[in-house]
Simulated scan of single mutants.
Amino acid sequence: MDNSKKVWFVTGASKGLGLALVKKLLTEGYRVAATSRDVKSLSLAVDNNTSNFLPLQVELLNEESVLKAIQDVINTFGGIDVLVNNAGYGQIGTLEEMTDVEARENFDINIFGLLNVTRNMMSHFRTKKSGHIINVSSIAGLLGTFPGWGVYCATKFAVVGLTEALSAEAKEFNVKATIVYPGYFNTNFLKEGSMKMPANPIADYTAARNTEVWHETQMIGNQPGDPDKAALAFIQLAEMENAPLHFFMGSDSFGMAYNKIEVLQNELTANEVLSKSTDYKK
């Protein structure tokens, strides 16, 4: 066990980018605690029985479960240095189609689970005066013009807002925060188990249905992002002395971010007079 290397805590680690990251970290000699709702499937997926790996079954919406997991890691490895909030799932459905239950379930996992872990981890980081929280959003956390993805986009926009606030709150304790905006990566994200469809689809929404078909027939298997390279990028972010608050992961994410910035700049310019007309006259 190399005690000179950082200790990582990764949620949602049984598949996708989380799994790729955990495997790469263990290969590089880091100590890793990884969470999943099913610890057996997590252990099988990671396939590492060394003392550097601590698989944990955690219910992210249960604060006692989260607290126990954090304490187990501290007891095992002596502390935690990097938290990666990766757990989440995609929810498809237009805003009219989505039931209240479907919307709240997506927010529960993508936001309130993340908040449970962050809130309880901050106590440890604040005490030790160091730490790095990496929250996985999505390019859908900056760009919301994807028909049929409104609730999912809303959860990922929320990740951005709370992480920006966290960065300001945690700075005095030498705790860093980074938002990662992945584009499309070749994982199981678009497949069953990581993606939920609306229970009551409305056929009139042709743009949303066409988007679903495109994802199912054109994008699956053709995602430009390499999960193993993403894992390396996560590690590089955690090793940076001045880690960015915003990190766009993948050439598609990078390009869409630039397009969004261009739209904002154009709309600011076009509406500058009206924007400033609402001030009290001096």
Rank of each mutant, 00 (worst) to 15 (best):
Y181P: 00
H132M: 10
L142I: 10
F107A: 04
S41W: 12
M240I: 01
A87E: 01
S275M: 15
M1F: 11
F173E: 03
F77D: 11
W149L: 13
S138D: 09
T118W: 09
V263E: 13
N222K: 08
Q91E: 09
S51W: 03
L61A: 08
M256H: 04
H124E: 15
T217E: 15
F146W: 12
L54K: 08
I134A: 03
D279F: 14
P55E: 10
E96A: 08
E64C: 01
R104T: 13
Y258I: 12
M195T: 13
T76N: 15
Q91L: 13
L44P: 04
M122S: 06
V7Q: 10
S36T: 08
G255F: 08
V101K: 13
S167N: 03
V151K: 03
I139S: 00
E96D: 13
T278E: 14
K68I: 08
V160N: 06
E105Y: 06
T145I: 09
L95K: 01
A33G: 08
A158T: 13
G144N: 12
K6E: 15
L17K: 06
T187I: 00
Y258P: 00
G148H: 06
N188G: 05
K40V: 15
N200W: 10
V46N: 12
P55F: 14
W8C: 05
T155R: 03
I235K: 02
T145G: 08
V7T: 14
I179Y: 10
P244R: 04
K229T: 02
G113W: 08
F112A: 05
T269D: 09
I134D: 00
V84P: 00
Y258S: 07
E241K: 13
I139P: 02
D279C: 09
E169M: 02
A140P: 00
A165C: 09
S41Q: 15
L42I: 01
A257C: 09
A45C: 12
I80D: 11
V66I: 11
P147Y: 14
A33T: 05
K23A: 08
P244C: 06
V117A: 03
A243M: 00
K281V: 15
